[in-house]
Design a protein around this nucleic acid. Structure first.
Length: 420
RNA sequence: GGGGGAAUGUCCCGAGCGGCAAAGGGGGCGGACUGUAAAUCCGCUGGCUACGCCUUCGCAGGUUCGAGUCCUGCUUCCCCCA
């Protein structure tokens, strides 16, 4: 952010010292607004998957801080815009989702927000509109006359998201080309309906957001503002939120609390401080202490990061439990009964189960072929013993005193088998 | 409308004189080293009832003992000329 600008509002002060800010259309103007009264701000969320992943956490945290500093957060469901598809930052058009998919995705995504925001009818309570409410009612000719006339195709062509596609000779359909018009219109609509004056988002949204600010001016709203976050990558340059098993989902039914905790626990050293600021609410001086830890002591900071971040999403109790499970598993080398568990039948056990099948059932490997290869590479363990023989049969004698069998892939991934 | 290219292992990029489960990267996973980190080194990276069988190179046919590789038609994308 602008070096010369020193924010005075609580909202911008927090965001800037924690590293949330990449660009703002008018720091001073926004700061003044935030100081004067209640700031109403929105962030749009596309309904392209049935859960958000950690990549969306940054914007969600901004809404949370907004609420904590006296503003009113408006997470906007993109039920309408998702039917069009945002071309920003993508070099190929996305598959067109069916309305059913979008509706299902929306329901999945909604759940997450209640963990981070307080909803209700109060002044500072969050509200969650869906842009399908107004976008699907638009009449084409009316929209062109009232809104479309304010858009300059010349300028739209110059925008990064569009230009990139054109420069690379990649198809950009008229449908997608309209996305920014709809997003811009959302901003105006949210201003009219709720008095929302700020739109936030990732840095890839900058173009779409300022286009909305501009549209507001032309359509006679009060002054609107744009604020974006930096694109979040790990210190080694990887995109945030992708792991082997896929995305780091926020919904517990798609990624267990324990795995979520593990995701944060495995943060690179260099990222610990940055992540503590962005994804926890620990005070800055405490974070400063944690990030100054050197060598292996930084692991303590990682555990705190993991527990704090997990507590915010899944609750303190579950987070502590995940931390304890990890402690028992990694630091004492014991089998915690709270590790992810798969239940098979007693009948299956009595007929004995091939190791390969067992690891596939446990979800640790995708196929028996992969299990075979992992065995060759020494990557599979049964009750902490390296599996040598791919013909090994698992039977009752492998159960511990609690009737549990532990399967591991590598050193970090463990699944327990129980029998009912 | 005419001419010329391209589509490869369902993560991506990308080689491939008719014998190919298909070179090489990237990414990912596993191993070693560590601190559940990074860097580095090594291995693996179609499926299965597994010394065998099955399915893969845009789609559909054809030639051949044998086709990713040759021929025909189709689809999609790119380039040049109109």
């Amino acid at each position: 952010m602008a070096e010369t600008f020193i924010p005075r509002s609580d909202f911008l002060k927090v965001l800037s010292e924690r590293g949330f800010i990449h660009q703002c259309s008018d720091y001073q103007g926004l700061d003044d607004k935030a100081r004067k009264g209640e700031l109403i701000a929105y962030i749009g969320f596309d309904c392209t998957a049935s859960s958000l992943h950690v990549g969306s956490l940054l914007p969600i945290m901004m809404l949370r801080w907004l609420q904590k500093t006296g503003g009113k957060p408006v997470p906007l469901m993109g039920g309408g815009t998702t039917r069009v598809g945002d071309p920003s930052g993508k070099d190929e058009s996305r598959k067109i989702l069916t309305l059913d998919d979008i509706e299902n995705n929306k329901n999945g995504i909604k759940q997450v927000f209640s963990h981070f925001l307080t909803f209700g009818d109060g002044k500072h309570d969050a509200i969650m509109p869906d842009n399908a409410e107004w976008l699907t009612k638009l009449n084409y000719i009316d929209f062109l006359r009232d809104v479309g006339r304010h858009f300059s195709v010349n300028r739209m062509l110059a925008m990064d998201s569009v230009k990139m596609r054109i420069d690379r000779d990649q198809e950009l359909s008229f449908l997608e080309f309209n996305y920014m018009c709809l997003q811009s219109y959302d901003f105006v609509e949210l201003n009219r309906r709720y008095g929302c004056i700020l739109q936030m988002g990732g840095s890839d949204q900058w173009g779409n957001i300022v286009t909305g600010v501009d549209l507001g001016r032309r359509m006679g709203t009060e002054q609107l503002y744009a604020l974006t976050t930096p694109l979040l990558t790990t210190a080694s340059g990887a995109k945030m939120g992708k792991t082997a098993a896929g995305a780091v989902w926020l919904n517990a039914d798609m990624l267990s609390v324990y795995d979520y905790w593990q995701f944060w626990r495995n943060t690179e050293d260099r990222d610990v401080g940055r992540f503590l600021k962005l994804f926890t609410e620990l005070p800055m001086d405490e974070i400063a202490k944690l990030e100054s830890l050197g060598g292996s002591e930084i692991n303590e900071a990682k555990k705190i990061l993991a527990t704090e971040a997990t507590a915010m999403l899944h609750g303190r109790e579950k987070a502590e439990k995940a931390a304890e499970t990890a402690r028992v598993t990694f630091e004492q080398g014991q089998t915690s009964t709270d590790l992810p568990t798969i239940t098979l039948t007693q009948a299956q056990l009595s007929q004995r189960i091939g190791v390969l099948t067992a690891f596939v059932e446990a979800g640790l490997v995708a196929s028996t072929g992969e299990a075979r290869r992992q065995i060759k590479g020494g990557g599979l363990r049964l009750n902490d013993e390296v599996v040598q023989d791919d013909k090994l049969l698992i039977e009752a004698s492998h159960q511990d005193q609690n009737g549990v069998i532990k399967l591991s892939l590598g050193k970090k991934k463990h699944v327990l088998l129980t029998f009912a």
